[in-house]
Amino acid sequence: MMPSALDERRHAESRARIIARLRSAEKAEKAKAGKGEAATTSRAKPVLLKPVLPKFVEQTQGRTACFVARAEALSCQFLTGGQAAEKKTAGKMATEKMVKEKVIAKAALGKVLRDFFVARRGKKAAPLLLFDALEKAFWERLGILKILEGRCRPVEMREGVEGRDFATSPFPAFSLQRAVCAVAETGTLVFANRTRAQAVLTFLPTVHIVLLAERDITGSLEQAFARVQPSSSRAALWACHLVSGPSRTADIEQTLHMGAHGPKELVILLYR
């Protein structure tokens, strides 16, 4: 192709013309409005945005309950600390108890994760577990990598990893990733990925296991966006992803199916 298509000067000229057209339209409109004629467009009145959230979200407990309920409605799974207590009992107390069970003590995280892999392990060899090389120290501190030894094969994701690296190896089945925060309003997990390798963890595996601290559950989308400001994060951000449940599609006859291209399952480890 012609290299001129990317020519800086040509693009600058295009930009100047586009902006000039937009500006001349603005001017014409202002002139019209100045003459007393009604402007053709409906101008926005400055109105404050009312909060979209129920009041209880202002408290931590309410936020957690709201997040858990909405995430579950989106087919997210929560790992529980104790026995599989999925019994449906009516009443508010039961809901509170269920939420409580879903918040795991930090010390118990390794054990819960090991139990998960034990329950999942079929006849096949231990599955691959991808994790971010930059976070290795964090996982080691939690003792997770050690406790999972033999249950799965951990793979460090480093910067510069390529898709074709996975083309020959057994397909990455699991990934372990830490969420920056979560949104109670929508049941959404938020990831701030600094490298492509981190983003691979979010999208490529079949089962995406996410670690989330209860204190990181925010109320609204705006609050979540504020947490992933490009300037405020520790390192430069490449992309951030708001994930609400596992990948899905309804493109064939409007029937909903999980696991379109991204993860088929989203497993959340909520800890305090």
Binding site: E159, E185, T186, A235, L237, H241, L242, S244, R248, G262
Partner: peptide, 21 residues
């Protein structure tokens, strides 16, 4: 569009983090 409260994936692209990109 689909009656969801938010699309499953909302992503913001634009950053310097990765040199391989």
């Amino acid at each position: 569009a689909t009656g969801q409260s938010l699309g499953t994936y909302v992503s913001l692209y634009g950053g310097t983090g990765d040199a391989h990109k």
